[in-house]
Design a protein around this nucleic acid. Structure first.
Lengths: 210, 210
DNA sequence: TAGATTGTTAATCGATTAACAATC
DNA sequence: TAGATTGTTAATCGATTAACAATC
């Protein structure tokens, strides 16, 4: 029903709502949310109607209600635990990313094959890859992030899948095959930069010929 | 004409082609590329036709030709220089990301307001934010990455824009307003994880009710 | 009541897919 | 020639947008 873009927009609305709440706003109009998410107010209302979220005609939406409704959709009503496989630069950056925790996302452990990176005596331990299955089972982990080199990614995914992981965000620059009943999203940083390059150059050409 | 997804697919085709080339492949069929990019072969041919790339009926495509044609589209015929603003965890990870350089993407400098992070005596210097305008002008930089906290992002974008930057990848968790003649893409890591959570939970429910 | 805003149905737009013609 | 593959035109699908009805 809802597509990826729609869920991304819901996240953006929610972030904006939380900011507005800290400014002591109580009500918000679809037009306000449209501005922060860079979409139209129709889009906002359409997104809400998809999930049966309704406001007050003439009176907009109550921010508190809206936050809790969107939060429920996005699974923010409870803490969601993730593990990170591959503790290179990206993996480390994710483990130290400050704003996850205040948004109910908790990275609970890292895994790596390099024993020099292992460390159990910290809040978020870095463990050997062999312990992944046991850890996932014992801690009931559903989600994981792959930040290993491209050649290792598919194998790591299969390891995670066999351990029972159901949702994966992949930073390795390769398009992974989704196992059955497992959601995989690929983010390729190089590809994102290439996108910027293409559209910038394209806009320049279009601008020049105008 | 081409949309974002199409350019992402071109990047994926190119990555796959480079791998195939190292395996001494000479020719490739649209069906092969479809497999690596997880799309259909019609999609591949349609993408190519959009850019006037043609192969040999019955004989597929010559890998060398294809790589150079896609490379030209993606601006890989020359090195593209980027700067990184905000040298936190993400910024550092990007500066150390190994595979950019072999794909004609060069991160040439970092910028930060924290003087403890400044360092001129390395290959990729970390400079004070005040020097951004001068550096961009002297080194003819067109592209940049924002990896500062959310509250600083819009201001940094405007600084970059005034300096002459034309394309920006933003990692700050806020949807930035595109200045005129400047391309901005937003990647929000939290939102990506929220996406995984939603679609995983959704798939589970759908699976359970089946 | 008049005006502003929500919410829904219909129209449009754009991207993907299907069908098939071209040709090596 | 027969078979496999490319390349294009038309059909479909899904998401966004427009129009407008509902109502506070």
């Amino acid at each position: 029903m809802a597509n990826k873009s729609c869920i991304i927009r819901l996240s953006m609305y929610r972030n904006a709502l939380i900011r507005l709440k800290t400014l002591n706003f109580v009500k918000v109009f679809s037009d306000n949310l449209a501005d922060v998410a860079r979409v139209t107010s129709v889009q906002v209302r359409k997104d809400f109607s998809l999930f049966g979220i309704s406001g007050n005609r003439r009176g907009g939406y109550l921010i508190d209600e809206l936050i809790s409704q969107i939060s429920a959709i996005l699974g923010k009503d409870k803490v969601q635990k993730f593990i990170v496989i591959g503790i290179g630069n990206i993996g480390k950056a994710l483990l130290n990313y400050p704003s996850f925790k205040k948004n109910e996302i908790e990275l609970v452990a890292g895994f790596d094959i390099d024993m020099n990176k292992h460390n159990r005596d910290v809040e978020v331990p870095i463990l050997p890859l062999e312990e992944l299955g046991k850890f996932v089972a014992e801690n009931e982990i559903k989600f994981g992030v792959i930040s290993v080199p491209d050649f290792a990614a598919q194998e790591v995914l299969e390891l995670m899948f066999r351990a029972g992981i159901k949702g994966v965000l992949n930073f390795a620059p390769i398009c992974l095959k989704e196992p059955p009943d497992c959601v995989v999203r690929n983010i390729n940083l190089e590809t994102e930069l290439e996108n910027i390059i293409y559209f910038t150059n394209f806009a320049e050409q279009a601008g020049a010929s105008r």
